[in-house]
């Protein structure tokens, strides 16, 4: 259908500017982010009445710590989704980073070098996946499914299936995962810095703009002179690299390397990104939205735990939230298209 034909430029000036705080916020953030913030706030208010422990410093700190590290993986996944890819191997690769660094440390390598090697190994895994996707032409889903299984296998093989206790990690290394600057845990500071940095880059830099073009319409991007294979290769590698970083922070926090860590993490991470507005068909998504998705899932988990709801219910509820979010999305998009 043809849109209302109006003279170019004129209509924009006539369009009423949003008024009030809500309007300005919506202009700044987009409707989805405002909606998610509202839901999270409502949950906060309800929970602070429902449970005396919810709004305590200890609970807030625990909750934030829980999503902060995973949030770094969410950042990588969101960027990859926007470029049109997907990565099922995030959980295994995060565990692999821990295991590689842990084994090297136990073999006498100093923890900083061990961590750098582990992160580079994850980058290499991402590069291998990127190679299979862009050069051989396989689908992200299949490639990352295979890598998910392989990486987990390597973790189990390297450790014999048992967690590695890393009791001799120097305190300055453990500080990454356990320390605080003032009252704020360092983990949270790292998380906030990563989120702000990537959110800014994704919104504003030409480099990441090409990620949107590629994911929105790969052929049109190629026909605009964008090297789409390079873009997809880099987003795939970036996602695995951020898993490596997350793995090292987890290791510093736990003081151990767990070969079975991160089982099912991929679903949580993808769900958070999608609730936050990322599209599985690429071209759409924001870091800020994805992080709000992460926070929402995390607040729900924490609330259910405080309310003594069985852990088994948590998965059911998380799945239902995802389904609801995606359904609402679908109808909003449909209505928007119809109006056009």
């Amino acid at each position: 259908m043809e849109t209302q034909t109006q003279e170019a430029g004129m209509s924009e000036a006539q369009r009423p500017r949003p008024t009030g705080v809500a309007g300005v916020l919506r202009q700044m953030l987009g409707a989805r982010e405002v909606g998610l913030i509202a839901i999270i706030l409502i949950l906060f208010i309800v929970m602070s009445f429902a449970s005396p422990y919810f709004l305590t410093w200890v609970n807030m700190r625990a909750m934030t710590m829980a999503f902060a590290v995973e949030g770094i993986v969410v950042v990588g996944m969101t960027i990859l989704l926007i470029s049109g890819g997907i990565d099922l191997s995030v959980g295994s690769v995060t565990a692999l980073a821990m295991v590689i660094a842990g084994l090297l440390f136990l073999a006498g390598v100093d923890p900083w070098t061990a961590s750098a090697i582990a992160i580079l190994a994850c980058v290499a895994i991402g590069a291998i996946m990127g190679f299979f996707v862009t050069q051989i032409g396989l689908h992200h889903f299949i490639v990352s499914l295979a890598v998910m299984v392989i990486a987990r296998g390597i973790c189990l093989l390297g450790t014999g299936g048992r967690p590695l206790g890393l009791f001799t990690l120097p305190p300055e290394f453990k500080f990454i995962g356990q320390g605080s600057i003032g009252v704020i845990p360092l983990v949270i500071i790292i998380f906030v810095v990563v989120v702000i940095a990537f959110d800014f880059m994704l919104r504003r830099t030409t480099m990441f703009r090409k990620v949107f073009y590629t994911g929105s319409n790969e052929k049109a991007a190629a026909y605009s002179g964008i090297r789409t294979k390079k873009v997809v290769f880099l987003t795939t590698t970036l996602c695995s690299g951020l898993c490596g970083v997350a793995g090292i922070i987890y290791m510093a926090r736990f003081g151990s390397a767990q070969p079975t860590f991160g089982l099912g993490m991929e679903l949580n991470v993808i769900a958070a990104a999608v609730i936050g507005g990322a599209s599985l068909s690429g071209g759409v998504g924001t870091i800020f939205g994805a992080i709000l998705g992460t926070i929402l899932l995390s607040v729900v988990s924490s609330s259910l735990a405080l309310l003594d709801v069985s852990v088994y219910w948590q998965d059911i509820i998380r799945g239902s939230i995802l389904l609801t979010a995606v359904t609402i999305d679908h109808f909003i998009n449909k209505r928007r298209k119809q109006r056009v």
């Binding site: 030409t206 703009r209 090409k210 073009y213 052929k219 049109a220 190629a222 026909y223 071209g283």
Partner: peptide, 30 residues
């Protein structure tokens, strides 16, 4: 529709797709 236009991206972003660098600073910020 297939390879000329990014349907779900803003009109402005469509127009600058061939050379985003032109509307960005030297540091690559749009």
């Amino acid at each position: 529709k297939g390879d000329g236009i990014f349907l779900d991206m803003p009109i402005a972003a469509n127009i600058s797709a061939l050379a985003v660098e032109q509307v960005a600073t030297r540091l690559g910020i749009v």
